[in-house]
C-alpha cells in the first residue's frame, strides 16, 4: 500500500501531508516553472551561479591550459563536455537542491501539495528553469567551440541528448533527496559537497581520455557524473573508453555501460528522494 507511507511514517510532531498522487499535467508544470523562472531571475546569487559559473569554469581551465587533448577538435570536445558537466553539477544539482530547500522552508511546497498538484509535478516545475539553463549552455557551448575551434563531429547526437537530459533527470532526483538532508539553505552548501567532491575527480574531465586506467578508472566508471562525460565524448566525437575513435555502430555498444550507470543512479536518486525528500520544515 503506497498510499499510506509518507504521512504515516513521518515522525511524531511532523505535520501530515496528502497521499502521493500519480497525476502529471504539463499545464500545471508549466505554470509552476514560470513562477520558478521568475524567482530565479530575481535571485541575483542563484542567477549568477546558474548563468556564469559553468562558462567561467571552462574559460578558467582553458586559460591555465587545463584542457589540452592534443588536437583542437579533441580540446573543443573536452571544453563542451566540461561545460555540460559543470552546468549539470551546479545549475541542476546544486541550485535545485537549494531551491527545493528554500521552497520547503518557506512552506511553498506544502501549499502546492495541499492543492491539486502532485509531488512529481511540483518537483518538475521547480526543475524546468534549471533544465532550460543547462540546455541553453550546452547549445551555446557547442556553438562557441564550433566558431573558435572546430565543430564537434557528432558521431552519435542521440548520446549527447541522453547525456544532457538523462543527467539532468538523475541530478534532479539526487537534488530532491539531498534537499531532504539539508535543514537550511546554508546547510545545502555542505550536503551537496559529497557528491561533487567524489564525482568531479572521477568525472574524466581533465586530460586526454584513456589516460587513466586501473582501479581508479574502474571505480570512476560507476560514479554518478562519469556517464555524462562518457556519453558526451562518445556522442560528440565518438571517443571511446580507451581514447580510440569509434564508428556510430560502435558508440551504441560502448554506451551500454554509461547508460546503465546513469539509469542506476537515476533509480537510486528516485528511491532516495522518496525516502528522504521532505515537503515541510522539521519542527
Amino acid at each position: 500500500m503506497t498510499t499510506k507511507t509518507l504521512a504515516s511514517t513521518s515522525p511524531a510532531g511532523g505535520r501530515p501531508l496528502p497521499p502521493p498522487a500519480r497525476s502529471f499535467s504539463p499545464r500545471r508544470v508549466a505554470v509552476l516553472a514560470r513562477a520558478e523562472l521568475r524567482l530565479l531571475v530575481r535571485n541575483r546569487t542563484a542567477l549568477f551561479n546558474a548563468l556564469a559559473m559553468p562558462p567561467l569554469t571552462v574559460v578558467l581551465f582553458a586559460a591555465v591550459g587545463g584542457i589540452d587533448a592534443g588536437t583542437s577538435a579533441a580540446t573543443g570536445v573536452m571544453m563542451v563536455n566540461l561545460l555540460v558537466f559543470m552546468s549539470l553539477a551546479f545549475v541542476v544539482y546544486y541550485n535545485l537542491t537549494v531551491t527545493y530547500v528554500a521552497r520547503r522552508e518557506e512552506l511553498v511546497l506544502k501549499r502546492y501539495l495541499v492543492g491539486e498538484c502532485s509531488r512529481v509535478e511540483i518537483l518538475a516545475g521547480g526543475a524546468v528553469p534549471a533544465f532550460a539553463v543547462a540546455l541553453a549552455q550546452t547549445v551555446l557551448g557547442i556553438v562557441a567551440v564550433s566558431l573558435v575551434l572546430e565543430p564537434p563531429a557528432f558521431v552519435n547526437p542521440l548520446l549527447v541528448v541522453v547525456a544532457v537530459v538523462g543527467g539532468a533527470v538523475m541530478l534532479t532526483a539526487l537534488a530532491a533527496a539531498t534537499s531532504g538532508l539539508s535543514r537550511t539553505v546554508e546547510s545545502a552548501q555542505l550536503t551537496t559537497l559529497p557528491l561533487l567532491i567524489v564525482a568531479i575527480p572521477f568525472g574524466g574531465l581533465f586530460g586526454a581520455p584513456g589516460a587513466s586506467s586501473g582501479l581508479f578508472s574502474t571505480i570512476g566508471t560507476f560514479t554518478p557524473l562519469r556517464p555524462i562525460t562518457d556519453l558526451m565524448l562518445l556522442g560528440s566525437a565518438g571517443i571511446g573508453d580507451g581514447g580510440q575513435v569509434l564508428t556510430l555502430g560502435e558508440t551504441f555498444a560502448a554506451a551500454a555501460v554509461p547508460v546503465a550507470v546513469l539509469a542506476g543512479w537515476t533509480l537510486l536518486g528516485a528511491l532516495a528522494a522518496r525516502r528522504w525528500m521532505r515537503w515541510e520544515p522539521r519542527r
Partner: peptide, 27 residues
C-alpha cells in the same frame, strides 16, 4: 478550498503572480 494555519509564499513573487500561479494549478 483549503486555508491552512500555516502555508507559505515565495516572497519574491508579487501578489498577482502568486495568485495567477495558483490559479494555473486549479481545475
Amino acid at each position: 478550498g483549503i486555508m491552512l494555519q500555516s502555508a507559505g509564499f515565495s516572497g519574491d513573487l508579487t501578489v498577482a503572480e502568486t495568485a495567477r500561479t495558483w490559479a494555473g494549478t486549479l481545475t
